[in-house]
Design a protein around this nucleic acid. Structure first.
Lengths: 206, 206
DNA sequence: GAAGATTGATTGTTCAATCTTG
DNA sequence: CAAGATTGAACAATCAATCTTC
């Protein structure tokens, strides 16, 4: 198995992708969040705030799927952010089992600070690369992801875990005919104008 | 910020990479490990076994850096695998503060089973893709990783977290003039023949 | 009764403190 | 005293059990 196996180049590719993802997580997420948010929150908490800002609060189950954790964990995470004054929680309007989450002044400022720091950093790091080439690579990655998901036992239930990277045009969503939370929200906004209840939560930024 | 920002395509790319990595982790690592190892061990434990099989056991600190966890966690993880009869631990020969780890019959069989299942799966999933294209994409990813690491505050100390994907020829290692544990081990093997002490641990497979 | 949210016990993680060897 | 490994307390994750609303 040492050397010229036919799976060698596959392994190399997976390695490159894994290292890249982990590096992005370490530097662009963790490190940057510390700079911008000064140890106030963790990346996972940031994800949750981002979810709320972009999709309008769902059920705890949705939060859990999005974060990739159990319902119990999601419930506790929400609870903690509420205690930290970073989230507001109200009961669902129609279905009182559900929850409704919205950002606070504080968390909105936090998100803005992070987004700004992030924008700068990304410019700095990726600016010199060729957009064409990266778009092509992204497409390849999406095709591969789609293929892997198709080969999974529980393909249907899997959340694709876009994490902090919600995308307007998600190729993967198209490839797999999926609709994710963000997508749902968009449709919702398009059909009606806007519900009452959460006048401060205007999720237009991405 | 909605729409045609210059960071949009960067975000798309990061999203694709993130989803890909998470899908691989879920399906190729988690799911496959369950199939092959029947709930005996976790992915993190698999990583640790793989580390031992490929690099000859180091200090606990090295194990920790490799797994991306604290020394305390690494120490406890090793302890648990020893209790599970999947690792053997002996004191360091020269420096008695250090540890020496080796696989057992049981863990060697487990690793083999996983590797085989993995090989099959990778064939199946990636077989139809163009190696050229993937190699090119891998190179791009490595260049990007290198650039990000260079822009990090604590670039020097970062372990690149190749995880399960040790690579004989790691482009990244070259780009950053790094030497990782695997690399060290190789050099070690080349200079001397082989030390005594761990006759069963022959880390030739990758 | 089913769908959802929450709580309690266990496991794994971190940080700080301690122990041991060089 | 420095470098390493380990232990104990605190925190987040899980699963199973419970509570509430439909």
């Amino acid at each position: 198995m040492t050397g010229n196996d036919t799976t060698d180049w596959i392994n190399d590719f997976l390695g490159s992708a894994h290292v890249f993802a982990s590096t992005v997580a370490d530097v662009i997420e963790e490190e940057l969040l510390r700079e911008a948010g000064g140890d106030q929150i963790s990346v996972s908490q940031l994800k949750l705030l981002k979810l709320v800002s972009l999709t309008e609060a769902q059920t705890i189950g949705d939060v859990a799927a999005f974060l990739g954790v159990s319902n119990a964990a999601a419930s506790k995470a929400v609870d903690k952010l509420v205690r930290m004054m970073l989230l507001r929680r109200s009961e669902g309007e129609s279905d009182r089992r559900a929850i409704h989450l919205s950002l606070t002044q504080l968390s909105r400022r936090l998100l803005d600070a992070y987004d700004e720091a992030r924008r700068r950093k990304l410019q700095q790091v990726f600016g010199q690369f060729d957009p064409e080439e990266l778009q092509q690579a992204a497409l390849l990655l999406d095709r591969l992801s789609a293929r892997i998901v198709e080969h999974s036992a529980r393909a249907e239930q899997m959340c694709l875990q876009c994490g902090l990277y919600f995308r307007e045009k998600c190729v993967l969503r198209k490839l797999l005919s999926r609709r994710c939370l963000y997508h749902h929200h968009k449709e919702h906004l398009e059909s009606r104008g806007k519900t009452a209840e959460a006048p401060e939560n205007d999720p237009t930024g991405i």
